[in-house]
Design a protein around this nucleic acid. Structure first.
Lengths: 233, 233
DNA sequence: TTGCGGTTGATTGTCAACAATCAGCGATCA
DNA sequence: TGATCGCTGATTGTTGACAATCAACCGCAA
């Protein structure tokens, strides 16, 4: 045995290569709206902006393309993805199934640590809402939902969730920018969190379904409004 | 209106860039077992093999990493992914939910064209099995299952499925190489195809569950056997 | 006016060389 | 004898320049 403690998750100050840093920075810019939907991304310009060569930048773009935040046409150009009603419908419908599946996997394995962390994340979300910090309330809401994916121990499922998480954040952030406030949220997750600590899985499942329908119709209303505005111009 | 018909899926003879060609070739080599699990991939060597520079090759590797067929450690190396029992369990369990969801989405929209194509793919699978061509029977089985994802019109779901399809093929191919024949397959999908054309969705769903359990236990048995062999050495 | 064809500037795809980093090995010293 | 430190070869990360390709523009003819 080594004398040095090597707890899991210890030495994760992992190498931060340019590529990863660029991915994070760009994702942030896209989600924050700094790079609006449809904005063309020119590799050479973007490379200069980051003070880096086109190689790593290209690879970073590749990651974001796979994630669905960017769209590329060979030999022609890359641009920030556009928001579409069909897509947000797909995201919410698939998410419903995935989150139910995650709870099914987790249900019997829930323990004190799980409940503790669940409440911690919920408290953080409530705090952000109370402070009126909309940007971080979006992040906190995603973190709250992420918990079940992390806790259920299904790494493939977690990967799929992480893959769509960015897009979801993009939609919410756009919604938020359009409306200032996203709506009366403080009690939005009370039932969700309460049932997640209860004993009735079927109730939890129907709450997830409701929760997603509510989320979808809010986003849908926002998008329809925006499309009408666009057409009116 | 333009005079030129531009049906969707028409002009998709799209540019074939090196990167895409390499991805396909490498995926083929990995799945066929030519590059066995654990084999280290050295960029410069691989680039020379394909007669191409490291740039495009790196991007191709990036794609396969995202797909889960390769694993990389920064500044250290890349190698072909290893098969694990946990992972195959995850693949089959998630796939069960996704395929049920796909059928739910599709069910009311099924039409003559759907049934026709379904039977066409089933026939092709049966033909491959009859010919004893195990390699293409795997491809055909995947194509048969892919059909519902393509037909249900949920592009996000289709993307997730395509993302795990490669890994699934990898497991089956490994299984096949170990056992010569994958087992008594000809009637393996008869019930599946019949129910998919029926009117009882619940029956279809339970068939999917059974189908996946059968598939998992076959793969599981193979992997346990292999691990014992490895430990015995 | 309208449609067509060539030209051009811009943008991505590709390349070969250079720099940063790592795992393994051997020398060194307690 | 055992562990530690520094070196070394190999491998990935990064760079700037060159080639292939495309969308848009302009002039021209019907």
């Amino acid at each position: 045995m080594s004398t040095v403690e090597t707890k899991p998750g210890m030495g994760v100050l992992a190498r931060r290569t340019f590529r990863e840093q660029i991915v994070e920075a760009l994702r942030g810019s896209i989600i924050s709206g700094e790079l609006a939907p449809g904005t063309p991304i020119v590799e050479s310009d973007m490379a200069r902006t980051f003070g880096v060569s086109r190689g790593p930048l290209r690879e970073a773009l590749g990651d974001l393309i796979k994630e669905g935040l960017l769209v590329t046409i060979p030999y022609t150009g890359t641009h920030v993805v556009d928001l579409s009603l069909d897509e947000v419908n797909e995201i919410f419908s698939l998410r419903t199934e995935l989150e139910i599946f995650a709870f099914r996997q987790l249900w019997e394995k829930r323990d004190a640590a799980y409940f503790e962390e669940l409440n911690r994340r919920h408290d953080r979300l409530l705090a952000s809402i109370a402070e009126g910090d909309d940007e971080s309330s979006i992040v906190d809401e995603l973190a709250l939902h992420s918990h079940v994916y992390e806790a259920c121990g299904h790494s493939l499922l977690l990967g799929v969730w992480n893959g769509m998480r960015g897009k979801l954040q993009l939609y919410w952030a756009a919604h938020h920018r359009a409306h200032g406030r996203r709506g009366p949220l403080p009690e939005g997750h009370a039932r969700y969190v309460a049932l997640a600590q209860g004993t009735d899985l079927d109730l939890m499942i129907s709450e997830i379904r409701d929760h997603m329908v509510r989320g979808f119709s809010r986003t849908e209303a926002f998008l329809r409004e925006r499309d009408q505005l666009k057409q009116g111009q």
